[in-house]
Design a protein around this nucleic acid. Structure first.
Lengths: 154, 154
DNA sequence: GTGGGTGCAAAGGATTTGCACCTCC
DNA sequence: GGAGGTGCAAATCCTTTGCACCCAC
């Protein structure tokens, strides 16, 4: 039980830093620090499950009930343009967001329950280099997802 | 000029076979072979550029002007459920379809012109095995895309 | 003070659905 | 003949947008 606790504490500290970082970057790039935005930042960093805009909205409402869904979307778009949020697009009507690790990274996705988790695999940059060579494209980013069943759904 | 011609000829032969294959599989799984469906199959196999439903619709209209967009969508859904079409989902309102290679395979995507091309990279299955081990998920499929600029847009 | 941000409601765009009619098997 | 397919229009869903008001700087 102590190991998870330590990990959890580190994580909380990391998240606090990330909120401070995002706040500072918004300010230094000429954006205003409105209460709504600060609550949205908190919600983004508090939720590690790759939430949707709707889920973030629900969470923000708990602390700032007057916030609108449109503001959540506008703030997500602002952060995305700043490169501070990773947007995972799905056409089935559910974009998911990750403000903790805004650089592209691989995910595993459960087709049963919809869970999305980070997964550590290496060799991605080598793969991208291969793809550049094979295609002649100048590649800068990627999207790598694996689909299957999570441990609970197996 | 002769090499491309040969490649093109092979490709045409391959596409003809694929149409026959799809037709047969539709029939043997208890689906009807309506004129609309046959035209949609032709269009799917004729277009190697990963077309959208709308683009397929436009192409089908040239040969069968009474076909409706709803029928295109319904046929795509039928083929997808049969595992005969690969659906590439994008949230910006543009799903793309590939009936020539229905198994998951990596793509390169141009962020300038939107072009989507197949790219041959190996080590994908090893990568997926790594991801399974690291995550504990039972993985069956994947989605691997690289983003950048195609040769024309560089 | 003022320009950016917010909230509301309406618009937008891709996809799905209900239903009457049709037609392939 | 009957189940499955088609076409039309309306509905659905997420997301974006227009605009009047507001407030952080």
């Amino acid at each position: 039980m102590s190991e998870p606790h330590v990990i959890e504490s580190q994580s909380i500290e990391q998240r606090r830093r990330r909120v401070a970082e995002l706040t500072e970057r918004l300010a230094s790039s000429g954006h205003r620090l409105t209460p709504q935005r600060l609550f949205i930042l908190e919600a983004l960093v508090a939720d590690t499950s790759h939430p949707t805009a709707e889920e973030l909205f629900a969470r923000v409402r708990q602390t700032c009930p007057t916030t609108s869904l449109a503001t959540v979307y506008k703030t997500l778009e602002t952060l995305r343009q700043m490169g501070e949020v990773l947007e995972l697009e799905f056409s089935d009507g559910s974009n998911h967001y990750d403000a903790l690790r805004p650089a592209a990274h691989p995910h595993v996705i459960c087709e049963q329950c919809g869970r999305i988790e980070d997964v550590e695999v290496d060799g991605i940059s080598r793969l991208q280099a291969h793809a550049m060579q094979a295609s002649g494209y100048q590649l800068q980013s990627h999207r790598i997802e694996f689909y299957g069943l999570c441990q609970s759904c197996q």
